[in-house]
Design a protein around this nucleic acid. Structure first.
Length: 421
RNA sequence: GUGGGUAUAGCUCAGUAGGUUAGAGCGCCAGGUUGUGGCCCUGGAGGCCGUGGGUUCAAAUCCCACUACUCACCCCA
């Protein structure tokens, strides 16, 4: 074989693309009910968008981006996440001039990060995400979370954990950061090597460390939730009230720290414990300063990204199957050239009428045609042979009931259509 | 970027005191007498045993290197 799919990429084969399509159908339906409309933005953007948007200190920007120079000398980057491009488009197209909020979604959007692949982590993966601009209050936070949970619920997934947290705003976070850093500096002996680095670059990240000694150090550290300014505390209370009202269970996890710099106030994750180490199926939060930072007006925003591949892993691990559509409604078994032509004609007509019809392309024996039809899961098999051609009658077999009847060839198609109703 | 594991048929895997033509199940194809699927039976196709070196009379099997895949760290969806 000449070459293989690049490391960290995966083909979606015909045997599984039906699952993707089913999920996409559900997503579109839910988004319509919640008033979110689709936006499609380029797969690549100017690199500076992500430098400014995602943040120069993040791992994503520092070591995971697919960046290259195009033939015009521009620095281009394949999008490493979905939000920055949507915000750019929101600003560029002056969508802020419309009545707010602006509620948009993107679906199965390819996202690229140069990482070592492992279970639930690819170099190209696909996200469903939503973004809501312009609404400052916590009700929209709750609505955004509801969209994600609604999708999971519709797919039959009930037992994933929703964790929420608030990481404050530009008023209260700097002083908290300073306090945390001070605490860490006083406990340097009780921290792992990478946390000693994090302490300098982004102290919040130490909260997320899984090392035992770091966790103990962090336990005694000041807590962001208790250091929130009045406005942030009120916002977080409001979110909890809305979630309670909607009957949504959640856990407050003060250790949630998202890896993108633009988050403010509300952050949340929906996590599975049985798809390997990469258990975050959905992650998001509020980004109140991002629109302005990318050159737009001072408008708040909130959104999430949800990984389709990880969602499929969850479905698989829970043993949940999605409804599958039948590959073929009716198969025409034919014997001989004349009959094959008649079958081809009948199939063509049925297809025009929206019926999934198939006939032989492999020169199979009658028996083999039947086997193949059964494999396709056909409801009906029609048989046309020399006898049928001679007397104008065809055999129509119901494959599930194993019942046959003889009908005039001229009435075959209408008979099939009636049976499929 | 750092560790661990694995590479044999389309898929899932057997196969070491090194020793004839490398196996199974599933899948695929063809049959089980005249034109009928699922179950069962029979047969067939399909493998430079990841690649390149080395040891040996002899290597899928032992040694080395490389590559790919995979899991985990990190990070994230």
């Amino acid at each position: 074989m000449l070459t293989k799919a690049p490391k960290g990429t995966k083909d979606v084969l015909p045997s599984t693309s039906g699952k993707w399509q089913y999920i996409e159908d559900v997503v579109r339906d839910i988004c319509a009910r919640y008033g979110y409309r689709e936006i499609r933005t380029p797969v690549f953007e100017h690199t500076e968008l992500f430098l400014r948007g995602v943040g120069g200190t993040t791992d994503i920007v520092q070591k995971e981006m697919y960046t290259f120079e195009d033939k015009g000398g521009r620095s281009i980057t394949l999008r490493p996440e979905g939000t920055a491009g949507v915000v750019r488009s929101f600003v560029e197209n002056s969508l802020y001039a419309d009545a707010q909020p602006t509620k948009m979604y993107y679906l199965s959007a390819p996202v690229f990060r140069y990482e070592r692949p492992q279970a639930g982590r690819l170099r190209e993966h696909h996200q469903f995400g939503i973004e809501a601009f312009g609404a400052p209050g916590p009700s929209i936070d709750a609505e955004v979370i509801c969209v994600a949970l609604s999708l999971l619920d519709t797919l039959g997934i009930r037992d994933l954990a929703l964790n929420i947290n608030s990481i404050g705003c530009k008023q209260c976070r700097p002083s908290y950061n300073a306090a945390l850093k001070k605490h860490l500096e006083n406990n340097q002996n009780n921290m792992c090597k990478s946390c000693l680095e994090r302490m300098q670059t982004n102290p919040l990240r130490t909260l997320d460390c899984k090392e035992e000694k770091c966790r103990r150090t962090v336990e005694s550290a000041p807590v962001m939730l208790k250091s929130l300014c009045e406005a942030c505390a009120e916002h977080f209370d409001g979110l909890k009230k809305h979630l309670d009202t909607a009957g949504i269970g959640y856990k407050i996890d003060p250790h949630i720290v998202r890896g993108l710099d633009y988050y403010t106030r509300t952050v949340f994750e929906i996590i599975s414990t049985d798809i390997g180490a990469q258990g975050t199926v959905c992650g998001g939060g509020r980004y109140d300063g991002l629109v302005e930072q990318l050159g737009g007006p001072s408008l708040p925003g909130i959104g999430f990204g949800l990984g389709i591949e990880r969602l499929l892993l969850v479905l698989e691990s829970l043993g949940l199957s999605l409804p599958e559509t039948r590959l073929c409604d009716v198969y025409f078994c034919t014997i001989g050239h004349k009959a094959a032509l008649a079958g081809f004609k009948a199939v063509s007509q049925l297809r025009q009428d929206g019926i999934r019809a198939e006939c032989d392309h492999m020169g199979r024996s009658l028996k083999a045609q039947f086997k193949y039809a059964a494999k396709l899961g056909c409801k009906y098999v029609a048989v046309i042979g020399e006898d049928e051609m001679a007397n104008g009658m065809a055999v129509l077999r119901d494959m599930q009931l194993s019942e046959e009847k003889t009908v005039p060839i001229t009435e075959l198609n209408s008979c099939i259509k009636a049976g499929l109703q």
